[in-house]
């Protein structure tokens, strides 16, 4: 199966400075592909070259087999885009905007149904300028979907949304993917990428610093998991030190803390079961993409 998106050596320079510096990746049909990185890493520039908004200086881009540079019109019929920092006309009504954008596409979705799905049905006759930040954001997502696209680019999807709305948005994006749409998600939110993305490219200074599944990124970043429990029967904790994968055992009062790598936690619980020691308050602290990101790039997202 040929990938829906193929990017090879994509490069974009401004004043001789490469903002996007030879990145390559592909995205398969039905994937949610994340592009993660700090501000100024070149995420938006890279995506805008793919969308046909900016002209790349070097490299190849094929989306649905089409080159955005030469085949923009045909590509845009099958592409949905939510851009960062765009506004609509202040006095356009929500319903008018969706109906207008629907008229641009050969096979549009039912825009009234999109209004419902994105919680905007009550805002149909409200002017854009009167919407809250979250409502505007949901309208932009709906506009990205109104053409029944095969590929959707979402740039900072949940910017301006409150926690509840973020959750709801993630669920809806997962539904979109389940209907066979390929999604490219630009984000600087770890939790969002970890929750939604099948694979993630970490972009740093215009280059791909790492590309893997969120779990793969966490694993490759190394480091240890930690499990903590309270044995309900006497336990010689040093007997756990020889369990495969375990790198350390400590006792803190009634609690035992075991650190290790890989699948050590199952091995430890198996060992406890074999010794017929029941445990209470079991907690396994996994590493998050957050800490993996710091380990992989040597810095936090904010810098």
């Amino acid at each position: 199966m040929t990938p829906v998106i193929e990017v090879t050596g994509l490069t974009k320079r401004y004043a001789g400075q490469a903002v996007v510096d030879g990145i390559s990746f592909h995205v398969d049909r039905g994937e949610i592909f994340g592009i993660l990185g700090p501000n100024g890493a070149g995420k938006t520039t890279a995506v805008e070259c793919m969308e046909g908004l900016r002209r790349r200086d070097a490299g190849q881009v094929r989306i649905l087999g089409l080159d955005p540079k030469t085949d923009g019109h045909r590509l845009h019929q099958r592409l949905g885009v939510q851009l960062q920092e765009t506004q609509l006309q202040d006095k356009i009504k929500v319903g008018e905007a969706l109906e207008l954008y629907a008229s641009f596409y050969p096979d549009p979705a039912d825009w009234r149904e999109l209004l419902d799905r994105w919680g905007l049905a009550g805002k149909r006759d409200t002017r854009f300028g009167k919407l809250s930040g979250g409502q505007k954001q949901r309208l932009f997502i709906a506009l990205a979907l109104v053409g029944n696209p095969e590929v959707v680019f979402l740039d900072e999807l949940t910017a301006g949304l409150d926690p509840g709305a973020r959750r709801a948005t993630w669920d809806l994006i997962a539904q979109i993917r389940d209907s066979g749409v390929t999604v490219v998600l630009v984000s600087h939110f770890m939790d969002e990428v970890e929750e939604l993305c099948d694979r993630v490219a970490i972009l740093e200074r215009g280059r791909i610093a790492a590309l893997d599944t969120p779990a793969g990124l966490v694993d490759s970043a190394g480091g240890e998991y930690r499990m903590r429990f309270r044995p309900t029967a006497p336990l010689d904790e040093q007997s756990l030190a020889i369990v495969p994968g375990v790198t350390g055992v400590e006792r803190h009062g009634a609690h035992v803390r075991v650190t290790g790598t890989g699948d050590f936690a199952s091995a430890v619980t198996a060992e406890l079961a074999r010794r017929q020691v029941l445990v209470a308050d079991l907690r396994i602290e996994g590493r998050s993409l957050d800490s993996a990101y710091v380990a992989l790039t040597g810095r936090t997202m904010d810098t």
Binding site: L53, Q87, Y101
Partner: peptide, 16 residues
Amino acid sequence: QYRERGVLRRLGVTPV
């Protein structure tokens, strides 16, 4: 205004 607000840019990623 349409340029500054990105109204024109947004249309640049539609078939229109």
